[in-house]
Every structure is written in C-alpha cells, then in structure tokens.
Design a protein around this nucleic acid. Structure first.
Lengths: 205, 205
DNA sequence: CATACTGGTGAACACTGTTAAGTAAAAGGC
DNA sequence: GCCTTTTACTTAACAGTGTTCACCAGTATG
C-alpha cells in the first residue's frame, strides 16, 4: 500500500513545517514571539492542527532545543586537533561563539523547564555535545595532562559549567560592567583559567 | 504638612505590599504563577492599581531580582575569613547554596530580559555581590596568591562565570547525568578547579 | 465654593495555550 | 458501488494573560 506511506510522509512533512515555522519565528524575532497561533498562521493551518503533531507548545520548544544541541555538537565534532587540551580550548571557543551567534537557541537549550535528563538518554543531542568534552578529558587523563584527582564525569561537568557560565552571563546581559571590546579577552581568560584548573601540573606551562 | 507625609507613607506601604504579594506568589509557587491579577487579589486591590506603583510587570520582577542580589550579598558579606583564597572558596559554596535554596530568586536574577547594566550603577545589589569577588581577587593579587596575568575585572568575571555556570546547570536540570548524591562533590570540584585556575603558582598546593 | 489633583476602579482590547465538539474526505470491508 | 470507520482538520469556546482608557469619588488648593 503506497497510500499509508504517502500519508506518513505527509504527516512528517507537516511536523517539519511546524518546526520550521517555529524556528523562523523564534530565530528572527524572539523566544516569546513563538505562539501557537502565529505558527499556525505561518503554515496556513488551524492552531489546533498543531496538537495533532505535538503534545503541547513545550514539545515544540524541546524539539528546537534538541536541534540546537545538534548544531552545537556538529560544530564541536568538526574540531580535529589531536592534543586533548588544545582541542578543549578550541571547543570552548566554538561553544562560546555558538552561544553568542544563536542566543535564541542557546536560551531554550538551558532555560526550558524540565530538561531533566533523569534517564540515560544517551542518544540525546545534549549528551552528544557533552561527549566531546568527555573524550577530551579521558584522553587528557590517559596522556597525563589532565588531573585524575577528580573522577569522571565530574571533571567534564566542571568544564561545561565554566563555559556555560560565561555564555549565560553574556546572554543575560550581566557582562555590562565589561566594555564590549573586552568580552573576547574575558572569554579567552575564562577558557585558559578553566584549562589551568584541570591540568595535572596546575599549568605552569 | 503631615498629610503629605502620611500619603507618601501609604504609597510606600502599598508598594511594599505589592512586592510582598509578588514574592510570596513566586517563592511558594512558581515564577510563572506571578500574574498581575493574582497579586491584585492578594493585596485586595484592583489590578490596575498596581500600575500606579510599577511601570509594568517586569518592574516588579526587577525589584525582586534586586532583592535576590541583596540576599545573596548579605550572605557573602557575612564571610570574614582573612585569607582571600579561602574566602573565595567559602563564598563559592555560599553562592551555590543560595542558588539551590532560592531557585526562584536565582532564576529571575539571571533569566530576566534586559538586565543590561550598561551604566555604572555601582549601588545596585548585583554590583555589591560582585564586589565580594573583586575584593578577594584584589587582595589575592596583592598578596601574591592570585595571578596578575589577567587584569581586573576580567578575573573576577571568570570566577563569577564558573560558579554561576554550576548553579545554572543545576537549576536547569542539566546535572541529570550525575546522581544527586554526587552534586555536592561536583560543586566542590568546580570551586577547587576555579581556584586552581586563578592561582599564581598554578595551584600545586 | 469651584477647581484641580489623587488614588482607585470596571470594562475592554488584544493576546495567550488548550480542549471539546463537529465536519468533510478518504480508506477499508463487503 | 455502497456503507462504515477512521483520519485530518476546523470552529467555537474556556480560562486565563498584560495593559490601557475612561471614569469616579474624595481630598487639597486657589
């Protein structure tokens, strides 16, 4: 039966159209500008139709959040620097560039209620982005460059927290005390301090 | 004229009542549960009355945000450990305890739109909390324990970012990969790594 | 005493997310 | 080809949201 397939395809298409419309709304305007009615208007369907494809509005935003993590991990995985610490450095800067370039994505990735990844959803995109850090740390520990005093995955979380903190402060407008031209130096200093903090030798070099 | 004073006092009282009602709503329930109508109901006034005391809803939330920073800086300023690095360590833990104990406060302190502290509003409570870090850093640099390779206030922002990142990840539910009993170890590891990252000697001690 | 100002309100506007009930069309069974 | 069931979709409505405007009573001031 080709009909069932065609129907499934149409369904998937509409689902994608909804996500596309929502993404365009919240990337070009604001995160608060995404309303069910505006999405519906954009896809030229009734608002209630959306509920046939997504449980509620948050489900749409969660999808976009996942999309954001996919974009982020794609950027991270492009980095092929052999040395784990140097790779972490590049990864940190790539992370911050992403957050600043895609603030709307970044916000829903971390400000959404109930991200709670209780279970081992190891194929989530967030997990995948995090895996970049974990690989660097594991290699770094194996090579002796990174401290083994803090067991994994604690150390990877420490790195993530530092970089996320910088991104979060910047997006929250809490870097106002720093002149804009100093932001890059700040990001640089943060990445370097973080690396020093996890080095085995304390990072005199 | 006593009448003008009495009127001013009544005005101030109502302003406080509004803030009290809003705080109780968003502390006991949720940040999203704070609505103008529910505040009005609590203070037994019409919703429109609130607009005679606050420009809009965000003005109320900004006041509460400021209140949150006041609570935080009060906690920090209690710490009187002489050694700057040890004081930073204690401050970091106090900061994290505050964020976990008052998640609603913490969220509006950093998730509110337009916190942009462009100008030198040096008497804001956020500035005051930040000054705690700056004092530690300045003393630390003077005493030789803290690196002088990164000029202030960059280094203080680095510290703030790290600790805020940990708090933010925790509140966003992004620590789900860690078992709950490991969270304290994580916070500990983060504070220690941050301190190592800013030490002059790289922190072999 | 008339005027102007103050504090407060009810009704309304233009939204929001979401649900229940209903409809037109396509698919499946005979 | 007809009948029934399922699918896709919509209209109307509910219960809220922030905010504004026109209005009104009471107080202070000329």
């Amino acid at each position: 039966m080709g009909t069932a397939e065609r129907r499934a395809r149409a369904k998937e298409n509409l689902r994608r159209a909804i996500l596309d419309a929502a993404r365009e709304l919240f990337v070009t305007e604001d995160f608060k500008a995404v309303s069910m009615r505006r999405i519906a208007e954009k896809i030229e369907y009734s608002p209630t139709t959306i509920y046939l494809h997504f449980k509620d509005k948050e489900a749409i935003l969660r999808s976009l959040s996942e999309e954001g993590f996919a974009l982020l991990s794609a950027r991270l995985e492009k980095i092929d620097t052999p040395d784990p610490l140097a790779r972490l450095r590049e990864g940190g800067h790539a992370y911050l560039r992403f957050a600043l370039a895609q603030p709307q994505y970044y916000k829903i990735m971390f400000e959404l209620e109930d991200n709670r990844v209780d279970k081992e959803d190891e194929d989530s995109m967030a997990y995948r982005a995090f895996a970049f850090i974990r690989r660097c740390v594991t290699e770094g520990v194996a090579g002796g460059a990174v401290t083994d005093a803090v067991p994994e995955p604690l150390l990877s979380h420490v790195i993530w927290a530092s970089v996320h903190g910088a991104a979060s402060l910047a997006l929250a407008g809490r870097l106002g005390m720093l002149p804009p031209e100093a932001h890059d130096s700040f990001f640089d200093a943060l990445v370097e301090a973080t690396l020093r903090g996890i080095r085995r030798d304390g990072g005199a070099g």
